[in-house]
């Protein structure tokens, strides 16, 4: 079964198509990344996929069921980690899980049987009876993730699950997500962190202006869309270097006080830069962020 299938999906607000003929198909058991600049239509796509809003055109099939007609039945088999914190501040950790499980029609006994495993998954065993106000930001995110698993979903939506977390907390979330992937769950993840997408996702779809502009594994996307090496150059003598850089590298892009030089042969560029005392540089392999910026541009989208 295809966990989620979006076909020619369109959603307009005030005549402007926020989602514009979008096609997307998830493979069961894989982690999918949905990347895109602000306003590209990620959140609207997620809301359409859950049957929370109605499309103006196209079709959504979630867990094999047509939406919005069978949205409630489909959502029974799906977990959601929303972007904004929506834990119940009046409840303890345990009560949050218990109450949320009831929304899925589970009995208190069924949920109670699942709670120890959920607490262990979130690393919150010692916090079971703590109020939410006693949790750190990372703990809250982990609890939100555990809450999304209370119905043992086959597919989990994660809307920017690590935004605002410190590196330690992010790594804990990543460990959790890897465990879910190894359990065979399907994940759909939106994020602004390209390293996160590169680490976790098997398949990435980059959205811009309401449609998927490219799709592939992180490696495929990097191989297909960008030169393998990047040399970032900055310093007082940048203007002079900018004039002659194209002789040494295939493609250059200036962003503020930095020149990004994309090349297949970094040795020549580096050797030349070593001769220029007014410049500093950073040589690194190309990554997903380079692909993302190349395809969606460097302009701000807010």
């Amino acid at each position: 079964m295809i966990p989620l299938k979006l076909t020619r999906l369109t959603k307009r607000y005030h005549g402007v198509a926020v989602v514009d003929g979008l096609d997307l198909e998830l493979e069961a058991g894989r982690c999918h990344g949905l990347l895109g600049p602000n306003g590209a239509g990620k959140t609207t796509t997620l809301r359409l996929s859950l049957g929370l809003i109605e499309a103006d055109g196209g079709a959504v099939e979630l867990m094999g069921l047509p939406l919005p007609a069978q949205a409630a039945a489909a959502r029974r088999r799906v977990g959601v980690v929303p972007q904004a914190d929506s834990l119940d501040p009046d409840f303890t950790v345990r009560e949050n899980l218990l109450t949320y499980g009831r929304y899925f029609g589970l009995t208190g006994r069924e949920i109670a049987a699942r709670i120890p495993a959920l607490l262990a998954f979130a690393g919150l065993e010692s916090k079971a009876d703590s109020p939410i106000s006693a949790l750190s930001g990372g703990m809250k995110r982990r609890l939100t993730l555990a809450r999304a698993l209370v119905n043992d979903p086959e597919l989990v939506f994660l809307d920017e699950p690590t935004t605002g977390l410190d590196p330690q907390a992010r790594h804990l979330i990543w460990q959790g997500l890897r465990r879910l992937i190894s359990q065979g769950k399907t994940l759909l993840l939106t994020t602004h962190f390209m390293d996160e997408a590169e680490r976790l996702c098997d398949v990435i779809s980059i959205l811009d202006q309401g449609r998927v502009i490219v799709r592939g594994s992180p490696r495929e996307l990097i191989a297909a869309h960008i030169e393998p090496h990047v040399v970032e150059v900055f310093g007082d003598a940048l203007a002079e270097w900018t004039r002659c850089a194209s002789a040494y590298c295939r493609r250059c892009e200036q962003a503020g006080e930095t020149l990004f030089c994309y090349t297949d042969a970094p040795e020549a560029v580096v050797a030349e830069l070593e001769q220029r005392p007014g410049l500093r540089y950073l040589h690194r392999p190309a990554n997903l962020e380079d692909v993302f910026l190349k395809l969606t541009g460097r302009d701000l989208r807010d």
């Binding site: 409630a72 029974r76 929506s86 501040p89 899925f104 119905n151």
Partner: peptide, 14 residues
């Protein structure tokens, strides 16, 4: 404020 309704709307409830 608490987004409690939004959290519930992600479950089978309408």
């Amino acid at each position: 404020v608490q987004k409690t309704w939004e959290a519930i709307l992600n479950t089978p409830l309408t």
